[in-house]
Simulated scan of single mutants.
Amino acid sequence: MMEHPARAQPEPAPDRGRLLEYERVTAAGLPEQRLTIWLPPGYDGATRRYPVLYMHDGHNLFDVKHSNFNKIWAADAALLRAMATGRVAPHIIVGVWAPGTDRYRQYLPADIHQAAAPALRARMDAVAGGPIVSQAYLAWLAGPLKQWIDASFRTLPDRDHTAIAGSSMGGLMSCYAFLRRPDVYGRAACVSSHWPAIDPREVGRTTADGEAALARQWGDWFATGLGEPRGRRLWLDHGTETLDAFYAPYQAEVDARIAGAGWRKGSDWESKVYPGAEHEENAWAARLPEILEWLLRE
């Protein structure tokens, strides 16, 4: 007579890290902020310290129910895949939500706004609907926010263990942080950066050489602000469809100026084109493991 087997015990769920939500965060000179923080597997039972990746548009990173378009980057899954290669250490991800309609004026680099030709700046102002506050946003990111993160979690707070990433206007903001605060951010990913800053079709209407002039402005910005690599690492990319279809001339100018500054492509910086990729979260999610593996590798 066969005995009935003992009831099988459920396998413990794999540790895929955990999320923390901070719904109301005040920041001087800015709209109210919100955070989603991902702690990597093993964080709670460990004593080690972790590098930190700051990401913009935090509402689109982890949970579809918070997302704008029912699509997410799946940033936690992407980092787990990068970690599985053995070349990327576990990181804490700090997702900073965009403040609704204030997103544009919080992410547009103040340098570019101030240097823009009058007609282009007027169009930027119309989109912004209020004062540009990217300087205040960067001051908060690199100051009070980072100080709180480093005090509240077991981080490695130095430049070489602090990265920043974003897409579209968040890509511009990531470049802004990288150029303006090289003492804080040793890694940056500027994904599908929205170089036209406004509707791309309107740039050419601002002046006779509007697109070329704006591309040169971005190039000059990198040439004067980038400095030497000194161990830093920068990722740039774009697709070829929807909004990304407008980015190639701008990216070519930026790439040329980065190379001219003595940065070694493939080592200090990378610039990639993804044929067929659109300007949307699923496209960014698809390449995020590759981005993180290159950007965060030890």
Results as ranks from 00 to 15, higher is better:
Arg205Leu: 13
Trp235Ala: 08
Glu228Ile: 08
Ala151Tyr: 01
Asp183Thr: 04
Gly225Phe: 03
Val191Ile: 15
His194Val: 01
Arg187Met: 12
Leu138Ala: 15
Arg232Val: 07
Glu211Gln: 14
Ala208Val: 14
Leu172Phe: 10
Arg180Gly: 11
Leu234Cys: 05
Arg181Tyr: 03
Pro182Glu: 01
Ser193Pro: 09
Lys146Cys: 01
Met173Ala: 14
Arg159Tyr: 07
Ala208Asn: 08
Ser167Arg: 05
Asp158Thr: 12
Gly186Ser: 04
Thr206Met: 14
Ala165Ile: 06
Ile198Pro: 04
Thr162Ser: 11
Arg154His: 09
Ala139Asp: 15
Met169Glu: 05
Leu236Tyr: 08
Gly166Lys: 04
Cys190Trp: 01
Gly225Gln: 12
Pro229Cys: 07
Asp209Thr: 15
Asp160Pro: 00
Pro144Val: 02
Leu141Glu: 02
Ile149Thr: 08
Thr240Met: 04
Gly204Leu: 09
Tyr250Pro: 10
Ala139Lys: 11
Gly166His: 07
Thr155Pro: 09
Glu241Tyr: 01
Leu236Phe: 15
Thr206Lys: 00
His194Thr: 07
Asp160Tyr: 10
Gln147Cys: 00
Ala151Cys: 01
Ala197Cys: 13
Thr162Cys: 04
Ser152Lys: 13
Trp195Thr: 11
Ala139Gln: 14
Leu156His: 07
Asp244Pro: 08
Ser174Trp: 05
Thr162Arg: 00
Ser192Asp: 15
Ile149Leu: 13
Gly210Pro: 10
Ala213Trp: 01
Leu214Cys: 14
Leu138Gly: 08
Ser168Thr: 12
Pro249His: 05
Gly219Val: 07
Arg180Asp: 13
Pro196Thr: 09
Ala197Asn: 04
Tyr176His: 13
Gly170Arg: 05
Gly170Glu: 07
Val203Met: 10
Leu172Glu: 09
Tyr247His: 14
Asp199Ser: 12
Ala213Ile: 02
Ile149Trp: 00
Gly143Ser: 07
Cys175Trp: 02
Arg187Thr: 02
Gly166Gln: 06
Arg216Trp: 05
Ala215Tyr: 07
Arg233Thr: 05
Val191Lys: 00
Cys175Phe: 13
Ala213His: 10
Ala165Gln: 05
Arg230Trp: 00
Ser167Cys: 04
Trp195Lys: 12
Arg154Val: 04
Thr162Lys: 00
Ala165Val: 12
Glu228Phe: 03
Trp195Gln: 12
Ala188Ser: 15
Glu202Asn: 09
Arg180Lys: 15
Gly171Leu: 04
Arg232Met: 10
Ala212Gln: 14
Phe222Pro: 03
Asp209Ile: 06
Pro200Thr: 08
Thr240Arg: 11
Thr207Gln: 13
Ala248Thr: 12
Asp209Trp: 06
Phe246Val: 02
Ser168Asn: 10
Arg216Cys: 09
Leu179Asn: 03
Thr207His: 07
Leu156Gly: 02
Ala163Arg: 04
Leu236Gln: 03
Glu241Asp: 10
Ile164Ala: 00
His194Lys: 09
Arg230Lys: 15
Ala208Lys: 14
